[in-house]
Amino acid sequence: MSALAADAIEVYRTATRNNRMGMWLFFFSELFLFGGLLITRFALWVDEDGHIIRPELDQNVGLIVTVVLLASSYFMNRSEVAIANGRKRDFLVSLWITGFLGVVFLLGVVIFEWGLIHLPFVEHHIGPTDGVFGAVIFGMTGMHAIHVITGVAFIVVVWRNGKRDVYTEERHWGVEACAIYWHYVDLVWIFFYPAIYLIGHAVH
């Protein structure tokens, strides 16, 4: 490696370190947004005696979309490890699967939880105007869904750039940013899933 190239790599590494710190500070900031929503959930979903309650939701939907999102996180990680080891094909395929699973997650929420797209076999129950249950569910899943949509858009951009050989073993900050962003979206859901579907006793 020539001295000039080594210098350029060093510059890139410094920039990446700064970018990484910026990204994590952004996550730290978002923590307060999602934390605020979680606090809202625990403040509003209580009965007169102060017990935590939750609405009666379709548990199968909750479990399936959660597993789908976790699986997408696994493939995202695989994709990042692949580009770091120079396995371009593996990187692209894994990234594609991640984006696909992200879309599946979104459709799951939109069709089965929100009932925005009516399908004959889906029984729909709760809307945004249905008191605090509706408000909090749509607030939490809606804010999360906005992040999933941006994450999927990010994946599409990185996938297209990846096909054009923009990323190499040493220089793939774009992939890393996309990956940690996607994992962050997953991390949020890790706490939202029990908060919405599992914690408290169900109230009709």
Partner: peptide, 20 residues
């Protein structure tokens, strides 16, 4: 809430440490 949030935290630690 305690048990479920602890389980969630365990998952969160895994994601933050190994994936992120």
């Amino acid at each position: 809430a305690t048990i479920l949030l602890l389980l969630g935290a365990a998952k969160g630690v895994l994601v933050v440490y190994y994936f992120m």
